[in-house]
Write a protein that binds this DNA or RNA. Sequence first.
RNA 1: CGGGCUGUAGCGCAGUUUGGUUAGCGCGCUGCGUUCGGGACGCAGAGGUCCCCGGUUCAAAUCCGGGCAGCCCGACCA
Length: 469
Amino acid sequence: MASPSALTSQSDDFPRWYQDVVAKAEMADNGPVRGTMVIRPYGYALWERIQAEMDARIKVAGAQNAYFPLFIPQSYFAREAEHVEGFSPELAVVTYAGGEELAEPVVVRPTSETVIGEFMAKWIQSYRDLPLLLNQWANVVRWELRPRLFLRSSEFLWQEGHTAHDSYEDAAAYAMRIHLEVYYDFLANVMAVPAYVGIKSPRERFAGAINSLTCEGMMRDGKALQMSTSHELGQNFARAFNIVYQNESGQSELCHTTSWGASTRLVGGLIMAHGDDRGLIVPPRLAPIQAVIIAVRDEPEVLEACASIDARLRDGGVSTALDRGRGSFGRRVTDWEIKGVPLRIEVGPRDLAGGVVTMVRRDDGSKHVVALDRLATTCQGLLEEQQRALFNVALARRDDATTDVTSVDEAIEAAQTGFARMAWDQIGELGEARLNEVAVSVRCIQRADGTTPVSPDEPDLVAIVAKSY
RNA sequence: CGGGCUGUAGCGCAGUUUGGUUAGCGCGCUGCGUUCGGGACGCAGAGGUCCCCGGUUCAAAUCCGGGCAGCCCGACCA
């Protein structure tokens, strides 16, 4: 049955729908300074889940967490020409502190290649010190003129990995490993987002990198969102910061470095990749609350039953919330739907009389009457099914909205509603410029089988073309 | 940087043209009661430097001058 809508519908006005979800699911607010963001507890809980899953994968890949300063000497940026050029428009610079003008202005980090490079140079002496694999969880500042909560804010949270290796091959292999085993794996298996993987065109590459790997997700309005990046920095930063090591025969050599990151933008991606007209849809493996137990009535027997169901589910490893029946049923249901909780467990007098509860999946709204003695296993089963279904639905949607084309004009047309796929060598620099003129871009370049190439010079590569956030 | 628009309760707005008693409305909020299987309702309440400064006037949210802030479009940047 159609209920009066709490949100602007996606088809009506997608950006407005997004803002409504962020506000009504209590995820974030605008901060007092334009472009800043207050992340509210529910939004932060989602970020903490993202952090936990990615951090575990990062550690499996061998990197260790560390922390570097927020303030970076301005002179550091000048050392790598492309890097400084790329970042200077969005730098926030402190020129006055401690009651006086600073002798050297201090940059608020937009990314940490430079400071970390400085310290890598200090810590690396010998080939025995390599590879050096670091990661940090931090906030960064990139001054934004057109901010949007989670997607583009002047300050945001992220993870940035920085590594140094003794060879180009080792560095490239590590960047690829992070790209696939941390980011792609997390996106596919936790966030249920089937990302297109590939490398960035030279034009879209990170400032200072020799190659950038990317995971591009399709949002429900058909636009692309870059969900992670992994960069091969070659010897650019090693040269700028003198990151050298002695090889086995005693000669000094420059390191090869990488950097890679994913940010709170992923929360925005989560909203737009799965959300529907009823609000957010959180995949069960990511959900801070996997099941909400709703007391249909605020009555002692019902509340008691809810408390015992809650305890049993927690014992069974399900993270739960308990809704104690204050306020109207419909309103409470709607509020939990907006928050995207995967499973709603309704417990009312009618259920209890029959020795059952009613479970409702968030993704398809299907109702399941479940006997009390099969609570935990059924709950687990429905969560797992929903996790799979979300990925499969997103994959089908992505493939349906991806059109193979043979000309730039066709690519532009396809990009109005989805993605276009086209031979990379048929686009060329000129074609890419024409795309950019109409706010369409080459999101990534991949092999025909969809895997990530190691260089843009491989033959027969295809480009994924779309509008983007 | 150019053009357009807007600042009134937590949010969204009306009122300003034509100055006039106590500045309203919707949502939200507080209390009580009835409700509760898909966004409930009644009654009673709380909440305002009408962006700021100055001027005109018996009287300014309203008229005049100056300032500040924000939004949209364009340009720039990626």
